[in-house]
Amino acid sequence: MENQSLRLKLRVWRQASAQAKGNFETYELAAVPVHASFLEMMDLLNEQLIREGKEPVAFDHDCREGICGMCSMYINGRAHGPQRGTTTCQLHMRHFHDGETITVEPFRAAAFPILKDLAVNRSAFDRIQQAGGFVTVNTGNAPDGNAVPISKIDADEAFMSAACIGCGACVAACKNASAMLFVSAKVSQYALLPQGQPEHRDRVLSMVEAMDLEGFGHCTNTGACEAECPKGISVENISRLNRSYLIAQLSGGGTSTGTNTE
């Protein structure tokens, strides 16, 4: 296993800019070490392209340890590739076989326009967060961290929702390109914590409104988002959001009364 390497054929989506027409290009790599990560394989491809005087493939990446959410890529028809619970940067070549043809595309969604090749613009996610993904508290106003006890169960559950890395795999995986898993995860984190209660209903309404404005599709409960989420964010968050949204709409927004989720 130690020195094994793979010969691979790559079909990679190339697109010069948002306006340009894109197409697949095929490249061959002679020796990809099995212990390399998928992005390191892409590095090898780019080194090869540079040597051949061609332009390297643009792709987003940063931390390369599965937490920043910058890497994307739709690999063989799946967001972040074939491994469950894994971002592209943590996907290793040992999960592919010698001689395989790998198809690499960008995350595709109307709300994520392609910038170049495999890099897409996900700033719609930032704008949704700006619409209400926060607790209104200025620096310096906080009471002691232990002033309000929070049950371990709620804290743990809030953490599970907060573990979202904002990569957009849920949108890419959804046939409707819905952002419900992303939005509901943030709404849930605050819904589960006492700090999030005062603004809960307004938050739900404004984040959903922002999501709709960005052109994301509707959720039809296929669960594809959960299946492809590298952090295992649960679709239960979506149910929670739907309940909260309904109640907030019926009550005409405003503050909630302090029960835990609705």
Partner: peptide, 12 residues
Amino acid sequence: DQCVAQGVPFAR
């Protein structure tokens, strides 16, 4: 204190 007030889910 500040982070708790923001809704950071620290271990409890």
